[in-house]
Computed example of a mutant assay.
Amino acid sequence: MTTTSVPATGPRDRSRPALARSTAAAVCVVRGCTRPVYTGHACPECVTELAGQLREVGEYEGVLPFMVEPVRGGPGRGSPGYGSRPPLRLDVLAALDPRTLPTPEDDVWSIWGTIERISAWIAAERGETGHGLWYVLTQLQWAAGQEGFGDVADAVQELHRRAQGLAHDRPDGTLGDCLKPGCPGQVHPEGLGGRCRECNRPYLGLGLLKLQCAQAAA
């Protein structure tokens, strides 16, 4: 007769604390997200959202060249016809130039230069050659499993925000300081209200009214 012996380590512990330890998860490294992550460093929802933001940034390649001319009625010094504003939007030209690097005096990002730096980081981590937006998109899921992906996610979000601002897809200004205690973030327009870029707190309806009252009191 064949018998089955119990392993030397004893029966597997099925208690609640043991199960809790075995299913412990980290938090998604993408700014503003608090979803749990069991594999890699970013949740699937954020990876999908970042990929969508990258595709939108790519679409600005055909839009921003038409935004080089100053917007009629835009800010400028002096009287109409006598202002010192340059004939072209230097911020758009700088963003379209791959050689542009931000400085303490002028915090302008190159859209394509930033994408190339992201692709260079991914290629170095993978030990291969690759560059450009398509390469980043095809390797984004893999990159989300690597240490340092939080910096990549921050760069993509910031690049998307800046490209939107240059294309006048939304107002550049903020609605004010976040009202959440201890949060140093700024509330930016989003849809019919706003959202804090730091803690991701939404501001709609009464929350938006409280924010406006706080700014008026300040």
Results as ranks from 00 to 15, higher is better:
Gly173Glu: 06
His160Asp: 11
Glu147Asn: 15
Arg162Gly: 05
Asp172Val: 07
Asp151Leu: 10
Ala153Gln: 00
Gly148Thr: 12
Phe149Arg: 02
Gly145Lys: 09
Trp142Asn: 11
Gly148Ile: 10
Ala155Lys: 08
Leu175Asp: 07
His168Gln: 10
Asp169Val: 10
Asp154Asn: 07
Gly150Lys: 12
Leu166Lys: 15
Ala163Ser: 01
Gly165Cys: 05
Ala153His: 08
Ala144Gly: 15
Gln157Tyr: 10
Gly165Met: 00
Leu179Trp: 06
Arg161Lys: 05
Ala163Asp: 08
Leu179Met: 07
His160Val: 05
Ala155Glu: 15
Gly182Cys: 10
Ala143Arg: 12
Pro181Glu: 12
Arg161Leu: 01
Asp154Cys: 07
Ala155Val: 14
Gln146Phe: 03
Pro171Lys: 03
Arg170Phe: 08
Gly165Val: 12
Asp172Ile: 09
Asp172His: 00
Pro181Thr: 01
Glu147Pro: 09
Val152Ser: 05
Gly148Arg: 11
Ala167Pro: 12
Ala144Asp: 04
Leu179Ala: 06
Leu166Ser: 06
Leu175Ile: 05
Asp177His: 13
Gln139Glu: 05
Leu137Asp: 13
Asp177Leu: 12
Ala155Ile: 03
Cys178Ile: 09
Gln146Asn: 08
Gln139Asp: 04
Gly176Trp: 00
Trp134Leu: 06
Ala153Phe: 02
Gln139Ile: 10
Gly173Asn: 08
Arg161Asp: 10
Arg162Pro: 02
Ala155Pro: 09
Gln164Pro: 09
Leu175Glu: 01
His168Ile: 03
Ala155Leu: 13
Ala143Cys: 12
Lys180Arg: 14
Gln157Arg: 10
Leu159Glu: 08
Gly176Ser: 11
Asp169Phe: 00
Ala167Leu: 06
Gly145Glu: 04
Tyr135Ala: 09
Ala153Gly: 15
Leu159Asp: 04
Asp177Val: 13
Ala144Glu: 02
Asp177Thr: 08
His160Gln: 03
Leu179Gly: 01
Arg162Met: 07
Arg170Asn: 00
Asp169His: 03
Val152Met: 08
Gln164Met: 02
Ala155Met: 13
Gln146Thr: 12
Leu166Gln: 11
Leu140Lys: 05
His168Ala: 10
His168Lys: 02
Ala163Lys: 06
Gln164Glu: 15
Gly173Asp: 02
Glu147Arg: 15
Arg162Lys: 12
Gln141Cys: 13
Pro181Leu: 03
Gln157Cys: 13
Gln164Lys: 15
Phe149Thr: 04
Ala167Val: 08
Leu175Thr: 07
Gln139Met: 01
Glu158Ile: 04
Thr138Val: 15
Asp177Asn: 13
Val156Thr: 11
Cys178Lys: 01
Gly176Lys: 13
Glu158Ser: 11
Glu147Val: 14
Leu166Cys: 05
Gln146Lys: 06
Glu158Phe: 08
Trp142Pro: 11
Gly176Glu: 03
His160Thr: 03
Gln146Val: 14
Gly176Gln: 13
Gly165His: 05
Trp134His: 15
Tyr135Arg: 13
Gly182Gln: 01
Tyr135Pro: 11
Ala153Thr: 06
Thr174Lys: 03
Leu159Ala: 14
Pro171Phe: 07
Gln146Ile: 05
His160Lys: 03
Gln164Ser: 09
Glu158Ala: 06
Gln141Trp: 10
Trp142Ser: 07
Val156Gln: 08
Gly173Lys: 07
Thr174Gly: 00
Gly165Leu: 00
Gly145Asn: 12
His160Arg: 04
Leu175Lys: 05
Arg161Pro: 01
Leu166Gly: 14
Arg161Glu: 11
Arg170Ser: 14
Val152Ala: 03
